[in-house]
Each structure stands twice: as C-alpha cells, then as structure tokens.
Design a protein around this nucleic acid. Sequence first.
RNA 1: GUGCCCAUAGUGUAGCGGCAACACUAGAGUUUGUGGAACUCUCAUCACGGGUUCGAAUCCCGUUGGGCACCCCA
Length: 429
Amino acid sequence: MSKLVKKIKPNVIASPKGMHDILPADQPLWEKVRKAARDVAAYYNFSRIDTPILEKAELFTRTLGEVSDVVEKQMFEVKTKGGDSLILRPEGTAPIARSYIENGLSHLGQPVKLYYEGPMFRYEQPQAGRFRQFHQAGFEIISNENDTVYDIQIMLSCYRLLEDLKLKEVGIQINSTGCQRCRPGFRKKLLDYYRPKEKSLCGDCSRRLKVNPMRLLDCKVPSCVELKKDSPNILDGLCFDCKRHFKRLLEFLEETKLPYSLNQYLVRGLDYYSKTVFEMFAGGFDYALAAGGRYDYLIDSLGGRQSPGVGGAIGLERVIEVIKAKEINLVGKIKPKLFMIHMGDLAQIKAIGMIEELRRANIDVRESLGKESLKAQLKMADKFKSEWALILGQQEVFEQSIIIRDMKSGAQETVPLKKAVDVIKRKLR
RNA sequence: GUGCCCAUAGUGUAGCGGCAACACUAGAGUUUGUGGAACUCUCAUCACGGGUUCGAAUCCCGUUGGGCACCCCA
C-alpha cells in the first residue's frame, strides 16, 4: 500500500473573538480574586446564588431598556431547536431579580442579600478591559425598604473587595439619578436646555435627545462636554425623598471614610437604575473596576411585588489586569517539600503506591513518574526546589526500603518502607 | 457596527522578493543508580485562503484572530 495521504495541517481553530482561555499560569491569581469575593460575601452575610447562563430575551429588554446599548446591539443570542431564542446573560442583576420573584426569595427574610460570580456575555468589539465573555462577581440586596444603609453596604462590599486585593487609590464616583417622581421633571429641564442647542450636538446626542436624554450627560465629544457645563444639575432636581436618600448616603460615606467624589454626569446605561449610582476606578485606568446602583422598580417591572434593591458588580478581568499592571503579588507559591523518584518499572509501581500512602497521611509530594532517568527526575526535584527526594530503585524495592535524600546537603539515608511515612513526618516537622 | 495598527516555534524577536534565524522555555542526551553548570540534539509547510512572480514569510486581495479608539460598559 502506498501512502497517498498527504500530511495536511488542519486549520488552527482559534477561540471566538473576545473570548479567552484562563490558562494554568493565571489560575492561582483568578482563584485568589474569587476567594476574596467569597470572603467579602461571607463577612457581610451574602448568600451565594447561581442563575442560568441563558435567559429569555424579554428579561433583559424589559429591565435594561429597549433602547439601551446592551439590548440594542450587545445581546448574544442563541437559537434553540424549537425556534425560540435565548440570550447569554449580559449582566447578573436582572436574572437575580427574576429568580427572586420566581422562587419567592423574599421568604428568606429581609433583607435578602445575594452574591454571585460567573461569566457574562456582550456582543461588542473587544478592547482594553472589554471582552465578549467576561466575568463578574456581584452583590445584591433586595428588601421591602429602600433603606440607604443597603446602598452603603453594597458600596462597602465592592470597595473592600478591591482593597483586599491590594488595590490602592481606588476612587468612587457617585450620583443620584432620581426616581419615577422627580426624573420626569429633570428630563424636561434637560430637554428645555438642550432643544435650542440641538444643532450643535453630535449625531449620537441628537438621537439620544429623543430616546434617552439622560445619556446626554455621558457624552465625551468635546463640543457636547462644553454644552454640558451649563446644563441643569440632576442633584438640584431631586425630589424630597431622593434628596434625603442621597444626603444620608453622603453621611454613611463620611462615616466609613470611603473616598468618594460627586459626579453629576454619571448616568448609567441600564434603565433599571434609580436614585444611587456609583462607579469605582483605580488610578491610571479609565475603565470602571466596579459599578452599580439602586433599582427600586426592577422587581416591580418583572411582575413581582414592589421590592427595592441595590447592587454592584466587579469586573474580574479588569481587576486582574490592574493587579498585573501594578505588579501586585497576591499568590505565594505552595511547594511540596517532597519529590518522588523511581528507577525501573517495578519501582514505578511501588512509587505510585508510596504516593497514595503519603496522601493518606496528608503529606504533599510531587513527582515526575513519566520520566525514566534518575538524572531527569532529580533535575525536576531541583526545579521544584524540593527539600527531600524519595528514591525507589530496583534494589530498594527488593529490600523493601526507600532512600530519603536531603537535596541541600546531598546526605541520604535508607529506611525500611514500612517506617518511611513516619520518618518523613518527623523530618517535615 | 465604524476607523487606524498588527499576525514568523510555547514565549519574545530577526529576516524587507532568492536555503526561515536567534534567545528563553520544553523534551532527549553527553557511556548505563544521583540534581543545580557547561555542551549536543529535537520542536515552524511564517494565522488561513486566494492572487502577482521563474521564485513570496516578504508585494496585493479576502477571511479569521489580536491591539487601540469611538459607541457603550464590568
């Protein structure tokens, strides 16, 4: 038979755009960040919740807003065989609100404090700190009362998490976006201010003027920024309730000494926010590491009983990017002090047995049992900076013994296999 | 969605129309049961597809992916 088959290198398949592997080298840092989030959640008494990665489209169109960018152009759609379409969740709050209603979580006792962590998806152009699949950890507090103390607890949770990750100089920007009572009045004031100037607005802004005037405050086009200077301040237009809520938030911020600054132009792109909104930044990075706000009507809009809530989410990729850029060292390497070495097939069998015995004794050991030569294995032991090498050769197997080698001094002692674990225990102490 | 830049070993780079090179990493070894040094060897049909050319990693087009910015956002 002749070999007619040409060696053809199949096209290399790349990961989808904006979606990345988290490689082994990065896993310790990721785990550190996730653990920090879990610890903060535990300290402030948040219970973990996991919701499906797919949700019905309506959940997001109804809560985030039909004309929000996330809904208009960033929805990641999955068609089912039945012809329905599902959406890869772009954020965590709406699904939790859905679950809260569906599972009657109000029965958990007020307030309901929930924490989550997992992948989110948005169909957009990847760039600095921005991916199609990214990860968030988040905190939500839902209760009967829209008590400002919950706002500060959310901000504290987010802030402490960043602090625990050794991120220094984190700044918090806050604003109030008003409520259903005062926002219409402010919208009108905005419109009154901007309508006569419509011709000088950028294209996006003149469109926003019609669909979502609040977003005019967010524009970064220089000419619009100039116009913004004299625009009505949202804080002046707040109703009595919102004003009181905001004032109280400031008192809490003073008490907790969180480094905040007012930003009257901070309006977030998701419709469900009301009253408090905030974003947290690390010095030198222009994307928010964490953000959130209050959502007094979210549960309502999904058909649940009126239950105000407040929440915040932390972008894990962004946090990790900043940690790396600032060369913050969070991960200490755990290195087992023992290294198992074998010579020959028989010894390889015994070596496996020995490792299992060590495991039962709760002793960490590293190995490179796929390698054959003693040299290569010693080299590995050295690379891992092992303190002792356990060496099993033909002769040791035959004698029912094992060599314990001190890697620093090179001194070796041969001990009976039966006593090996005890001797090792003593050495490790 | 739009605009600009980019793509050569696992990583970082050289090669600029004529034999794909260097460093690091990884693997094997330097006479067979003892590591850290040194040395030797191995690892790429130059992202993919097409075109121009006697000849393409190199020039052109397309695709995919990456980076940055806008929009928006964690």
